[in-house]
Design a protein around this nucleic acid. Sequence first.
DNA 1: GATGAATGAGGTTTCATTCAT
DNA 2: AATGAATGAAACCTCATTCAT
Lengths: 206, 206, 206, 206
Amino acid sequence: MTDKKLSRREREKCRQRKEMIAAALSLFSEKGYHNVSMQEIAETAEFAIGTLYKFFQNKEDLYKALVMEQSERFEVAFEAAIAGPADEIEKLRNFVRIRRDMCRDNLPFIRLFLAESKGASFNLKAGLDADLRKKIDAFMEKLAHIFESGMENGRFQKIADPYSLAIALDSVIDAFILLWVESPERHPFPEDPDVILNIFFKGLLN
Amino acid sequence: MTDKKLSRREREKCRQRKEMIAAALSLFSEKGYHNVSMQEIAETAEFAIGTLYKFFQNKEDLYKALVMEQSERFEVAFEAAIAGPADEIEKLRNFVRIRRDMCRDNLPFIRLFLAESKGASFNLKAGLDADLRKKIDAFMEKLAHIFESGMENGRFQKIADPYSLAIALDSVIDAFILLWVESPERHPFPEDPDVILNIFFKGLLN
Amino acid sequence: MTDKKLSRREREKCRQRKEMIAAALSLFSEKGYHNVSMQEIAETAEFAIGTLYKFFQNKEDLYKALVMEQSERFEVAFEAAIAGPADEIEKLRNFVRIRRDMCRDNLPFIRLFLAESKGASFNLKAGLDADLRKKIDAFMEKLAHIFESGMENGRFQKIADPYSLAIALDSVIDAFILLWVESPERHPFPEDPDVILNIFFKGLLN
Amino acid sequence: MTDKKLSRREREKCRQRKEMIAAALSLFSEKGYHNVSMQEIAETAEFAIGTLYKFFQNKEDLYKALVMEQSERFEVAFEAAIAGPADEIEKLRNFVRIRRDMCRDNLPFIRLFLAESKGASFNLKAGLDADLRKKIDAFMEKLAHIFESGMENGRFQKIADPYSLAIALDSVIDAFILLWVESPERHPFPEDPDVILNIFFKGLLN
DNA sequence: GATGAATGAGGTTTCATTCAT
DNA sequence: AATGAATGAAACCTCATTCAT
């Protein structure tokens, strides 16, 4: 019984936190970190500003929590996409597909994530959390490993070093996402992952 | 005579403006738009703050002018790289080379440019100037045209639509630049443009 | 029976109140009124903040209650020291002794008391309670009366008016206490009350 | 000419600073540090709040500057009173007189000073500036030295150790000032310094 | 009766911008 | 024409107090 009550409180807290994060995400993604005030976030989330500060020590803390939590979800999905017994080609296809799906469902976060991972420390004074940077790096290594194993088992030619290929694939996907985010009609994200992957799969020169 | 005097004044003004832009560029690139004050820029440029406002209507105006002017220089260089009678392969090599060179010589601006063109409207309230966006788009079309003509004259296979290839190439170059900017020692930008271009030139699959 | 139950409740309440006062005293004395939050007091006293407000209408009320209650204990002790049949000299010695003892045992309250009775209304908006001021004044009159009766019965010379002597003695004791509070090792409070009283007892000039 | 202009600016700045300090002094002395807002000080001094912050880094800085500057004036006057060739008795008289005069002319600062030197660190988090504490201590030593030399040359009896006498005299003067500050009519500060000094000069016992 | 989450007024501080000199 | 002192709106954040559970 006490357990249940506690659990209700906990769930309530969790829900509130989620609403705050959601409001913050929506606003940050629309206007950028420095053009959003805590007052604004509180109002959007329909809480008093003091309540916001009960959940997050300060604005930067809120921002970091937001980026970290969302990134985590992305990371988990990406890792899942390239894990498992599938062959290298299928793994890459999965990766492209999951990127597309995650982006479709998390549009507001994409800008934030791209801005963070590319545009870098232009928002926070202390720069992006080292934790996130490490996670991104670690994932890139895993992506590179797919190319590497593909080369070892003869599926792939050694057209470039695996890490460079990972970086390249990642950046190309990002570029297509960005195009799509900016004008979804003119630049729909291709349904077939091979539209993107063929750039890497097929040779360009005769 | 009046003409000469005016001209001298003009030149003087131009010099002052350049110094202001330089100071702003250095500071913005280091700390980000919102973490730099007009006071700071004025002090770095060794002008009074009032003088700064004689040249630029407000902080956003200064920022936009800075981004526009610098971008212009980049654009001119990029256009030059892909103009002329060279064949498509050589043009792409030129493009990669010029990107590398411009970045080496304009390190402080690169972060700003990447943050602006990717991370986007995270600094300014009104977002990046439509003008710049158009110029970037126009250049992308030109880049795409290289791929297109290469396909028409049989130098390139039709592995993807030309615009996508342009976007892809551009983003891959950016990714390598970013790697290099962040850790120049671990990720030097390749001297030979083909290190990057081979990703596109050679087929990956057997 | 009901009576007994109520009495138990009453005792419980009294105990809780004491714990709150104790926590508040400890914190106020250490950090000063304005640098202590009600939250902090509640946590230190191990009560919910709402419970704190059941006992005291507001922060100022808590502070005043604290000062009043503690002062009361001091006053009672001081009054006892100078009451009774002892001669004037012994009464003054008793007074000095009891001041020393009370201070030793109530170190945290001393700062508060000295700050309040000297520094005055620097904490509260409405100033210290008139009640306390009156009590202090009344006690001063009693102290003065000792000097007065001593003069009347020939034990004391009329070197100054009795009230001034009372003020003087009180302030000198306070000064020694303050010295001792700030650096107990360098300025121990003299065991023998005459070390202080001799300033008054003996003449300075030849 | 340039010199004159600069000097005018400097004088203007000095005047402004004085006005700010005066407003702050008046308000702090009346209400206490924590019950005065920077807004209030700015309004009283008839400046914009931003201007206040041009002169003082923050509230604490303003407070410390205020206390230090005023204390300096007091210290200089006190030192002057006990310097010179006068005999010990006359020096003590001078000291009492100068305390009276300074207090009369600087009423608002007295409360602040007494609160600071007694009530102690109840206002600032960091406590009173160590500098001021040192100065007060140093002055006490000088006061003690008067008693010491008076004992050596036979003017004074050795009724207590010199430092204790210094502390005692100082605190007694403070006590009379406090009485006078609180109710000037009922407790006028005695014109004749010997009214106070006789407590020390004459013996109390028969 | 006890609790402590929620509130929001109010404090400190910054900084883009103006304008008198 | 150049200056930089003055401005004050608006940001971040705290904490005394309330009230639904």
